[in-house]
Design a binder for these strands. Structure first.
Lengths: 119, 119, 119, 119
DNA sequence: GTGGTCTAGACCACG
DNA sequence: GTGGTCTAGACCACG
């Protein structure tokens, strides 16, 4: 289910965190569904359990998942957590958009280019 | 002329490289104009000369500037270099856009949000 | 009667122990009244019997309840046990209060804030 | 300057994080003052650099400190960060206060007890 | 020099 | 069984 790119400059724990956010936003992971255990996911991905744990802790701090002591990690009721994920993604878009504006691109040109992309 | 933020998580050399691209794209830096020397710019910004050097090297690799041995760095005839800068900025935008699509956002919603921004 | 929150970061046995203390202090549980058996309470709350057992042991050590071999757990004659529960709760309060003092808050400010709370 | 208790049940990184917050709130650590490096503090306290790093990262996420790449960690302009620290400390106080209320203690009794403490 | 990430492996509390 | 913390040690990017 989860896939990571060991060659990426994005840290592994960050990739994993983003994937969790993505799957929850897409309802592939549903509220109160249990995530793979730290150890099993680490084994499956061939990475260190500490790295998975770090991703899970980030996700818990973001309100995306919660932990049940002695049992495992579960998907939160998503409303607030997903909002945060979306907000972050939009912030990145705005930043890239503003960088183009700073380079002298016209707003309409940028938007038209994006509209061309979607079809 | 150049301004950097030491507290930013964006590396300093990267900030500097982007500023060079920005000023060239905006024709504030013009073809064959000389850039500040590594040492003078480092002194002015209070940063390590190696950092300035790295930014210049990146800009040279991108075709934005060229070096004249023993003299300094100069702005290239811009057409291709600026194209590269713009292409990179657009690539970042597309990446952010696609991340939103992956999160389930509708293309029209994203574009309308951006259109709201521009006014 | 007892209610626990599996998602809380407070251990379940601790929550249960505190609830026992609370009900005894409030005389909802009365001297020599029998507590639910470990197994029945575990079943009712959907938790591990060992967890209930641990809470009961804590409560017994605090003098809140006593065990009758082969029969079950019973509420103690409360005076000393309740005193211990209260003492512990006050200790926690003092600790939080002192932390605020250490942070430079004025005693009167803290007390006034609490007084505002109570109304 | 920093002191930790290895025997405490409070994690080391958490103790360190709280100390940072305390010293900033008390202006013992002043804005833009540099903190000890990860390695030097680890050595001084006899703990692992990773543990110090975790505390620093927590403090950075809280806005208490900021990092300058290649140089070190520095105290933020404190207003917002300190507010968060104080808010957290007050939350702990309120929790302890409410626990006492639940145990049947009268608000005035609790407050009078605290007032007795302060003198 | 600085902090950030990761691994391997241990130990712990909770259940 | 579960996740959380910590150590020892390596490697990396940035400066």
């Amino acid at each position: 289910m989860f896939s990571i790119d060991l060659r990426s400059n994005v840290p592994i724990f960050e990739q994993l965190y983003q994937e969790i956010g993505k799957y929850i936003a897409l309802s592939i992971l549903k509220p109160d569904e249990q995530l793979p255990t730290v150890r099993s996911l680490a084994k499956e991905l061939g990475i260190n359990p500490n790295t998975v744990s770090k991703a899970y802790q980030e996700a818990e701090r973001s309100g995306l998942i919660y932990s049940v002591s002695g049992v495992g990690m579960f998907v939160s009721n998503t409303s607030e957590g997903v909002k945060a994920v979306l907000a972050k993604a939009y912030a990145t878009l705005f930043e890239a958009y503003n960088a183009l504006i700073e380079l002298g691109e016209a707003p309409d040109d940028i938007i038209n280019t994006l509209r061309g992309l979607k079809s």
